[in-house]
């Protein structure tokens, strides 16, 4: 199967994943340094999901993201300048400093928000897909959500209606094994969230969420199925959060073992991708390093842009409550 993927696509996915990783590592450091206010939920470890799904979408297609949403925005084309500025609470941010990490979005890229409410995204993605079908605009909506959100009633209602109306939507479950700090085994009686698909009359597919190529292949089928009018898919990606629920610290935590973290880190999605790129001679080690170096420079430029940007004017406090 993997031979069907062009080198350009592999390079594209790798670039998106590296961009997420380096952005997140720096954002986390800035939060710990007290430069970024509030709470950051970092996407490190889960890059293969956003990377593997988003290469199938155009800027016109919509997504709903989660509280762990920076990775989705980056993979869909978000610019570091405006992202860092938003995290810094500056007026030049994507949301003019009104949203912050948990609501970062860019409507021009079809991003209907990160969402501070676990399970906030599925009804909105379903609604966007309903709108797409009504408007016959051939767009697809993709809903990212976690194993934790799969227990929310909102997911059930959205999935039921998506199945009923055969909507052009893909539900991508990023099963990272934890609902906030609670292991999956302690929050649901099933191992595979994909099992729930049967209850909504849609296919449930499970993939290795650390392998961007596996995600790419499964997501391609699901997006095609949605776009061709055949209805939704529940795509479960088994992945892992290298950092804590909030912030950077990933090891020495009370609710999971370091051994478990180390085991997953051996399957770091970016390492796996880079091994593949080298093995298939798609990129050389130097070229891979260049991707990291260029991205690091962009991160630094983004930080500089954010730090030099003004805070929102006091007059903007109650602006944009209404259209």
């Amino acid at each position: 199967m993997s031979t069907q993927i062009s080198n350009d696509t592999l390079i594209d996915m790798h670039r998106r994943m590296v961009r997420i990783r380096l952005f997140e590592e720096t954002a986390g450091k800035m939060m710990e340094d007290g430069k970024i206010p509030g709470a950051l939920h970092l996407y490190v470890g889960e890059e293969a999901v956003a990377g593997g799904v988003m290469v199938h979408l155009s800027d016109e297609d919509q997504i709903t993201s989660t509280h762990r949403g920076h990775g989705h925005l980056i993979a869909k084309g978000g610019e570091f300048d405006q992202m860092f500025a938003e995290l810094y609470g500056r007026s030049t941010g994507y949301c003019k400093g009104k949203g912050g990490s948990m609501h970062i979005s860019n409507m021009e890229l079809g991003i209907l928000g990160a969402n501070g409410i676990v399970g906030g995204g599925p009804p909105i993605a379903m609604g966007a897909a309903f709108g797409n079908k009504f408007l016959k605009n051939n767009k697809v909506a993709v809903c990212f959500f976690g194993d934790g959100a799969s227990n929310e009633g909102s997911f059930h209602e959205a999935a039921n209606m998506a199945g009923l109306y055969k909507l052009p939507v893909v539900f991508v479950c990023e099963n990272n094994g934890f609902g906030e700090y609670t292991p999956q085994a302690n929050h649901q009686a099933i191992v595979d969230v994909a099992d729930r698909a049967a209850g909504y009359g849609m296919p449930g597919v499970i993939v290795d969420g650390m392998d961007a190529v596996a995600v790419y292949e499964a997501a391609g089928e699901a997006v095609d199925r949605a776009r061709s009018g055949k209805g939704p898919t529940l795509l479960e990606c088994k992945t892992y959060r290298f950092f804590d629920h909030v912030g950077v610290r990933g090891m020495g935590l009370t609710y999971r073992s370091d051994e478990e973290v180390e085991r997953w880190k051996k399957r770091d999605p970016i390492l796996l991708m880079e091994e593949r790129l080298l093995e298939q001679k798609v990129l050389s080690a130097e070229q891979i390093k260049a991707v990291h170096d260029i991205t690091s420079e962009e991160v630094l430029a983004g930080i500089k842009f954010a730090e030099e940007s003004p805070f929102p004017d006091p007059s903007s406090l109650t602006e944009d409550v209404y259209a």
């Binding site: 919509q62 709903t64 409507m107 209907l112 599925p122 009804p123 909105i124 993605a125 379903m126 609604g127 966007a128 897909a129 309903f130 709108g131 797409n132 009504f134 408007l135 605009n137 767009k139 909506a141 009633g153 909102s154 209602e157 959205a158 039921n160 209606m161 009923l164 109306y165």
Partner: peptide
């Protein structure tokens, strides 16, 4: 094509409104 019975699913109904409005309806 313009009038829809929904399931008894109030959060879904409002989500349908929010998402479709964001999509241009």
């Amino acid at each position: 094509e313009r009038v829809y019975d929904t399931p008894i699913s109030e959060e879904g109904i409002v989500g349908l409104g929010v998402g479709s409005a964001a999509a241009g309806c």
